[in-house]
Computed example of a mutant assay.
Amino acid sequence: MEAPIVVNESSQVAEARRHAVSVGKALGFSEELTGRAALIVTEAATNLLKYGGGGTILTRPYADIDSTGLEILVLDKGPGIADPAASQRDGHSTGGTLGLGLGGIARQSHFHEIYTDEKGTAILARVRSDEPAPAASRPRQWLNVGGLSTPLAGQEACGDAWASRWEAGALWVTMVDGLGHGPQAARAAHEALRVFQAASVTATPSEVLRAAHAALRSTRGAVMAVAVIRPMLGAFTFAGIGNISAQLISPSETRRLPSTDGTVGYSVRSIREQSYTWEPGSMLAMSTDGLSTRWTMAGHPGLQRRHPSLIAGVLHRDFSRSNDDATIVVVKDEQG
Rank of each mutant, 00 (worst) to 15 (best):
R138D: 12
F238A: 07
M1I: 00
Y276P: 01
V208W: 01
S322C: 00
K332T: 09
P280R: 11
V330Q: 08
T121W: 07
N47W: 05
R128E: 07
N323R: 15
D318Y: 10
G54H: 11
N47E: 13
F196V: 04
T219V: 05
I311F: 03
L143P: 12
Q335G: 09
Y115W: 11
Q274C: 04
D64A: 08
D318P: 10
R272I: 00
L303A: 05
E9S: 10
T293L: 09
S282M: 03
P183M: 05
L102H: 02
P231T: 02
P308L: 03
G96Q: 06
S309W: 01
K119C: 05
V223R: 08
H110R: 02
G91E: 07
D83I: 12
A222P: 07
S287H: 12
T254G: 11
D325I: 11
M175K: 11
G80F: 05
I114W: 03
I249E: 07
I5N: 06
L70N: 06
P132A: 08
L171R: 08
G154Y: 09
Y115E: 07
I5D: 03
L310A: 10
E131G: 01
R138V: 00
P205Y: 10
A227N: 08
Y115P: 04
A227R: 14
E113C: 10
V195D: 15
A198E: 14
Q335R: 15
Q304E: 13
T327D: 02
G178R: 06
P4H: 15
G178V: 01
L152A: 00
N243I: 00
M297R: 11
V13T: 13
A3Q: 15
G221E: 09
E9K: 15
G262V: 00
T237C: 02
T219A: 07
M286D: 01
Y51L: 08
D130V: 00
A106L: 11
T327C: 11
E2P: 12
S320N: 03
W166R: 01
T327K: 09
I57Y: 05
R140C: 00
G69V: 03
T263G: 06
H19W: 14
L75Y: 02
E113P: 10
L233C: 04
A163S: 15
A122W: 08
K25R: 15
S275A: 14
Q12L: 08
A298W: 11
A125M: 06
R107D: 13
V329C: 05
K119F: 13
M286N: 07
T68R: 00
A186I: 03
A215Y: 05
W278F: 06
A133L: 15
H181F: 04
S149C: 15
A161H: 09
A157C: 02
A168H: 09
S309M: 02
G80P: 10
E131R: 15
G69L: 01
G91L: 08
P280G: 12
C158R: 09
E15N: 13
I57E: 09
W172K: 13
A186N: 11
G28E: 03
E9V: 11
P205V: 06
V127K: 04
I249V: 12
Y266E: 12
T46I: 04
S200G: 14
E253S: 15
H92D: 12
E71P: 01
D324W: 01
I40A: 05
D325Q: 13
S259A: 14
A203Q: 13
V195F: 09
V173W: 03
S206V: 03
K332Q: 15
A153S: 11
M283K: 10
